[in-house]
């Protein structure tokens, strides 16, 4: 399932046997994963699958069982010092609404040692967000732009984004991710992102993790995904033969049968129809209905 041998350098994030209980209910069932430096990770799962709980554990926002290290530190015990090198957006509506943009930047300059006010102001140039504006008077999209400007102006090693574009229209969402990729990402920085709109972030991901009911069912590099999984639009006369190869998912679209295969040679699949790499959303749908990818 896991494709962990990506680098010999110390991982930015390391989780071993990560479990979380709410009362008697176990939400996370012993997650094991490493996130190396310089990667862009997507964490994808249904509502209630455990994405936010996992992120909360990594960010020191909640207690957990097992071992978690972020930049070599226990996040639950060392959250405050860790936040010098970790930035996160867990909810775009969480900016303090009583402040003006100028006041927010002035406070952050004194509170966060790695916040660069000039950079933040630069990121806001060309947007409709004015320095004298009160945050409570900004639109949802403008608040998202402001929050992104804030986290991008923090010189952090790890940036965690939990549904950062929730509720935004497509224009803002695309601008948000383009800005992130063009103005923020470097080889030294690591990005961990969760979203339901997986197709919108697929182009930027280097690695993907699927979580289902508190368990990781897929964790691999995107290159591996494209070599391991194949999608075939099967010709009607080949459906029986293709089914015999054990697709992990099959559905009929506009009279054509699309099948997703795990670890089947593409040359072998080509005889049944057009072979492509499944999109992340197709793969997600496929894997959510079966066991972990082998």
């Amino acid at each position: 399932m896991n494709d962990l041998a990506q680098t010999t350098a110390a991982p930015i994030v390391s989780a071993r046997g990560l479990r979380k209980h709410f009362g008697r209910t176990e939400i996370l069932h012993g997650l094991d994963f490493d996130i190396p430096a310089g990667r862009i990770y997507g964490l994808v799962g249904h509502n209630g699958a455990g994405k936010t709980t996992t992120l909360n554990a990594l960010l020191g926002l909640t207690s957990y069982e097992g071992t978690v290290r972020v930049l070599g530190e226990d996040p639950y015990q060392k959250r405050a010092s860790l936040m010098k090198n970790v930035a996160f957006i867990s909810d775009v509506a969480s900016l303090p609404r009583f402040l003006r943009v100028r006041e927010l930047f002035a406070l952050l300059t004194n509170i966060h040692p790695n916040f660069d006010q000039a950079k933040a102001r630069g990121f806001l140039e060309g947007t409709d967000v004015k320095m004298e504006a009160r945050i409570k008077n900004l639109s949802k999209g403008m608040i998202a732009q402001l929050h992104l400007a804030v986290v991008m102006a923090i010189d952090a090693k790890l940036l965690v984004l939990d549904e950062p574009t929730l509720g935004l229209d497509i224009t803002y969402r695309k601008r948000f991710y383009r800005r992130l990729l063009e103005d923020y990402m470097t080889e030294e920085r690591t990005l961990l992102i969760t979203t339901h709109q997986v197709d919108e972030i697929e182009f930027m991901l280097s690695d993907i993790m699927f979580i289902r009911d508190g368990e990781l069912i897929l964790h691999m590099q995107m290159e591996t995904v494209s070599s391991k999984f194949s999608q075939v639009l099967v010709r009607p006369d080949q459906v029986a033969a293709a089914t015999a190869l054990g697709p992990i998912y099959s559905e009929t679209r506009f009279g054509q049968t699309a099948m997703v295969f795990d670890g089947v040679d593409r040359d072998r699949l080509a005889q049944f129809g057009d072979v492509t790499t499944p999109t992340l959303s197709d793969l997600f749908v496929a894997l959510m209905q079966r066991g972990p990818a082998k």
Binding site: L59, L61, R79, A80, S81, L82, M83, K84, A87, F88, I89, S90, D91, A93, S94, L95, P96, R97, F98, L108, I111, H112, P113, V151
Partner: peptide
């Protein structure tokens, strides 16, 4: 109440501070 807890938790300051 202001839904700003997550923002302040993203700052490098302890809850005690």
């Amino acid at each position: 109440r202001n839904n700003a807890m997550l923002f302040w938790k993203s700052m490098p300051v302890t809850d005690f501070k």
